[in-house]
Simulated assay, not measured.
Amino acid sequence: MTDLFTAEALAALLQVIAIDLVLAGDNAIVVGMAAAAVPLAQRRKVIFWGIAAAMGLRVFFALITTQLLAIIGLTLAGGVLLLWVCWKMFRELRSHGADEIAPDEAMDAPDPSGTVTAGVAGNAAVAAAGATTFGAAIWQIVVADVSMSLDNVLAVAGAAKEHPTILVIGLVLSVVLMGAAANMIAHVLHKHRWIGWVGLAIISYVALDMIWRGSNEVLRHMA
């Protein structure tokens, strides 16, 4: 635990917390939007299994983080992947997230099967999407979760660098936030967009740092 009490370690810890918060909120938005596209009677199941899948994938990738980071070139590939995530985040933040829906809001969204409920019934994007089957919604979430969970683990590992304690804290925190507070975080990020911009800046820095370190690693291996 002694590595926690240095300025470098504390800076890395703050980066990890910011990354976990932003990516947990983004994952919740993915779950909410997928749930809003299925008939109302199936939405609770979609939300439950969507969040469960996100938690499970985070645990899985966390368990093999050491093996992942030992692969020559993965740090570079992870940095490039995170840059793509940053581009998506930038586009979402620039559009002010007008079409974003948190899991709890999905329960009040228009029923694409024909029944319109209270709440955000005016969300035309959801209504226009048409009904999606339960299986298709789960598959959509799982595909997104694989990418986002890997992004989360690589970003946390990239920020933690040579601090294994912070790496463990970050990975545990990402699972806890996804399971217990993702819905609330999604609302906070939607209301206070500046938090998302701060998170975007931190993840961009981590991505560029990973690309730099990964490139040097590959060049050393080739030499």
Rank of each mutant, 00 (worst) to 15 (best):
H221T: 08
G50N: 05
A136P: 01
L14K: 04
M89N: 09
N27D: 06
A127N: 11
K45W: 14
V198Q: 06
S95T: 05
S174K: 07
M178K: 09
V85I: 11
L82V: 03
V142H: 05
I185W: 01
G97F: 01
A223K: 13
I185L: 11
A181Q: 10
V153L: 04
L14V: 14
T115I: 10
E8M: 12
A53S: 15
W212F: 14
F60P: 04
H187E: 07
K88G: 12
F90Y: 15
T65C: 09
V153Y: 00
G130P: 02
T2S: 12
L76W: 03
G73K: 00
D145R: 14
V22T: 12
L189M: 09
F48M: 08
R44A: 12
A52Y: 13
Y205M: 13
L93Q: 03
A121V: 06
V206D: 00
H187Q: 10
S149M: 05
G214A: 02
M148L: 13
A157K: 03
V80F: 15
F134V: 05
E100S: 12
P164N: 00
L171M: 14
F60L: 15
I211M: 12
A155W: 01
R213S: 09
L200F: 04
A182Q: 06
D104I: 06
M55W: 14
V30K: 11
E217A: 07
D3N: 14
V80A: 11
E162A: 15
T115Y: 15
I19T: 03
R91P: 08
I138W: 11
H187M: 06
L76F: 06
D111A: 01
V175I: 11
A160E: 01
V168Q: 03
L82P: 02
V126G: 03
A34I: 04
V175N: 02
D26R: 13
L173Q: 04
L81I: 07
H96C: 05
I19F: 02
A157S: 09
K191S: 15
I169Y: 02
G196H: 02
S95I: 05
A70G: 12
I138K: 07
G32V: 04
V31N: 04
R193Q: 09
F60A: 13
V31D: 02
V85H: 13
G79F: 02
M178W: 07
M210F: 02
L68S: 02
T75L: 10
V120M: 10
F61K: 00
A70F: 07
E92V: 09
A159S: 03
R91I: 09
I72Y: 10
E92G: 08
T66C: 10
I211T: 06
G78V: 00
